[in-house]
Design a protein around this nucleic acid. Structure first.
Lengths: 220, 220
DNA sequence: GCTTGTGAAGAGATTCACAGCA
DNA sequence: TGCTGTGAATCTCTTCACAAGC
């Protein structure tokens, strides 16, 4: 007997990757996968796949592997993929526009139901198919549309204020693209995606790989 | 004596956040920060800040704190911010366009120097100020422009092939926005940013917070 | 006094290695 | 025989707690 209780965060973060792999494998007409094959597709090692899946339940068959369709169902269920979580995007500049039009969102149960901006020229227009409203209408529209997730794609200076608005409007999950740390109540779940930071991390490794004169290991 | 050697990955990932915080604090005219203040700005705890900074060297003053300007210099140096790493963007759809025009990149030493796409209508045009070339010219232009980082913003189906092209063209760092796992040689550093996955992780927590009928903890 | 720097303890994640079972 | 499921070992990261030093 196994109680499907606490799933480690690191595992949760990999479940979407496994789900994707299972969809690919299923589309290829394969009906059974081993942990090795899944690991290969997901870019991790087999022991990790087995350990991760074991947190969800005992869904494999020893000597055989996992039934693709059944495992796909179980991973979907664990992720709550059956649910639809409507999303609002705040800030329809460069990046907000791309996010509003990102097809992957709607396909995976995250329809973008409204946009918000402070630019009067944008308000009332459709950007990437999403109608843009003034920020003041956030509380009303979040409630009416049942929005669950807010995406912040504003400049850093505006992000905290937007986050406060979202939080007050009842949003409990925020995906933040603004390069700033948001202060929000504990019951609001925030994930940061900082594009420039990602490049800086790559840059760090490049610099280590190509040490220039003054930047080798240094004794100080 | 301290040897500035191996910095843990988790620390490296936080350095850009500290750097940002230091810039903010500096702009506010503050010349000395404590680990508590920095931690606050960076959204982590003070012990972590001190431990992280201790991997770079001994740059604080007991009883006082850190000199903002000096620490900023040291963190910049560790990150290799003095270097400029030219970036190419492959795939100028929705997202690629936004990335090509993302101001934060150029500002932080990652100028976007060329775009690549297979769409003949895009080739030869400027998208977000970046000239778009056919994929075939990748090797030539990567060499001529000294590009160090490749951003993949294509559909998943095209991503592996693009990654192979980048790798063959000499690119050693890849930022991948395509929702697929790339197979690349070990000397190529890949970071994945999967937007839909981020939402799925938020969705997982939402579902846990609002357990519906069939999805509570289950004994199986 | 106050704050850093850091060993040591603790928590969490990964990997190993093998028993258990089709 | 082959592959899963999982304790145990290991590694990594975080946090604690306090000596060192301004």
């Amino acid at each position: 007997m196994r109680v499907t209780g606490q799933i480690p965060e690191a595992t949760v973060a990999r479940l979407p990757v496994y789900l994707r792999s299972l969809l690919e494998v299923g589309a290829a007409g394969i009906s059974t996968v081993s942990s090795v094959m899944l690991a290969d597709r997901a870019g991790v090692n087999a022991a990790k796949v087995r350990k991760d899946l074991s947190y969800l339940g005992t869904y494999g068959t020893r000597g055989v592997g996992y039934d693709v369709e059944y495992l796909r169902f179980q991973v979907s269920r664990a992720l709550g993929v059956a649910n639809t979580w409507p999303v609002v995007v705040v800030g329809l500049g460069n990046l907000g526009r791309a996010l509003a039009g990102h097809e992957g969102f709607g396909e995976r149960g995250f329809p973008v139901v409204a946009g918000f901006d402070i630019d009067p020229d944008k308000i009332g227009t459709r950007i990437s198919g999403v109608l843009v409203h003034p920020l003041e209408r956030l509380p009303e529209l979040v409630a009416n549309l049942g929005a669950a997730i807010g995406i912040i794609a504003t400049p850093a200076e505006a992000a905290q204020e937007v986050a406060d608005h979202l939080s007050r409007a009842g949003i409990r999950s925020v995906l933040n693209f603004a390069p700033t740390v948001l202060a929000l109540p504990d019951d609001v779940d925030v994930r940061d995606v900082d594009l420039a930071t990602e490049l800086q991390i790559l840059g760090f490794h490049l610099q280590r790989a190509n040490p220039t004169n003054d930047d080798q290991s240094v004794v100080s």
